[in-house]
Nucleic acid binder design. Structure first.
Lengths: 208, 208
DNA sequence: TCTTGCATGTTAGCATCTCTAACATATGTT
DNA sequence: AACATATGTTAGAGATGCTAACATGCAAGA
């Protein structure tokens, strides 16, 4: 007499798992249609509830998208940490791995990736996103420091990490925007990542 | 008996300059509220016409935004060419200048910049934007080639130009997204640009 | 067990938005 | 002057975000 299958229509008045299912529908729609074309109504349709239901769980549309963006950042971070665990400590492999995962995530989930960054600039308002972003950036800095045989991060590590981040971030956007036709830039991603990492981490760039 | 001032309410039935004024209102709103929060209605209010008026000039909202994005690309390109004209030929200064203008534009018009890139990926559908983007990218490649003393672009120039573009593009986004607190990355932009350009253009990076 | 409170659904409805249809007005051509 | 065309208007359909008021089911204590 409880709820039916999660996939089909429910039998009871209450849903049982609406919050999670709304978030999943939101994530899917952001991916399918892009963050700007997402609508709460359609997520409701997909979850099989009325259009007023979400507002028992979320303040507004923005909060729903915020959850998706934050979850995306956590997923990306987690994938980085997994990949890191496969590389031996203090090697450039680890820096390359983080870049590879960053770009892989952007290509695998361009909608969510765009949501994490490209959209409105009020991300800075949400301290949880800022915090998580900072944490991940700190990991990069730490890896850079370890490449230099240090355990504490100094300013040059921050600068190098930031150069790497900028590059990888920009490349991610150019790739998912389709600005880089394969014909136009016939590069090998892994090779490029490694060479950039070598140039940046291998050489001191004062930067201010 | 003709139209009144452009700034105030009009006296005649017809507007006289609606298309241009709608585009200007659109540009302003994209800048003020962000591309995702722009509404045609508000542009109409600002231009002092009914909400049906724009559809005599544009197919739909998307076409209006498309014009703004394209105009932004042209503006950015123009600024690059101006800055280029101040540098002597074949120098790294020219490459640095293009990057500087790229980032300056992103910071000066973050709304339009986001519209040019961050939004939906259907930019690839509009061949005029693709064409203009390619043209500008070709200029970068050409400048890189000239730094190497060549007049024709070879594959390594394409790769180097693409590395520079990725970096500058990513940095632009990180800056306008507020991901880089000044406290977090205390770098000097000009110095950084130059050092990156030196590292990239100065050194052969095969990349594929 | 009853009942009462709270969480979580529903329907109804308002305000806003995009876009179209039908109509109105100015302009320029013949 | 008559007419075609360009460009404005109002009216309204359909979608959306969100709220208010109501309904339903679960859970905990009298």
């Amino acid at each position: 007499m409880e709820t039916d299958e999660k996939t089909s229509a429910r039998t009871s008045y209450h849903h049982g798992d609406l919050r999670a299912q709304l978030l999943e529908a939101t994530r899917q729609l952001v991916e399918e249609k892009g963050p700007d074309r997402f609508s709460v109504s359609e997520a409701c349709r997909r979850a099989g509830v009325s259009t007023a239901a979400p507002y028992k769980h979320f303040k507004d549309k923005e909060e729903m998208l915020h959850h998706i963006a934050l979850a995306g950042m956590e997923r990306q971070r987690q994938q980085m940490l997994e990949e890191l665990s496969l590389c031996s400590a203090g090697t450039l492999d680890r820096v390359v791995a983080m870049g590879r995962v960053y770009i892989r995530f952007a290509r695998a989930e361009p909608g969510v990736f765009r949501l994490m960054f490209g959209l409105s600039e009020d991300h800075a308002d949400h301290c949880d996103m800022v915090q998580l972003g900072d944490d991940t950036f700190t990991v990069v800095q730490s890896e850079v420091a370890k490449c230099h045989g240090r355990d504490t991060i100094i300013e040059s590590d921050v600068n190098e990490a930031f150069l790497l981040w900028s590059f990888v971030h920009g490349l991610s956007f150019l790739l998912i925007d389709g600005k880089l036709k394969d014909a136009k830039v016939p590069f090998d991603l892994e090779t490029t990542l490694r060479e950039v990492a070598e140039r940046v981490v291998g050489t001191e760039i004062s930067g201010g």
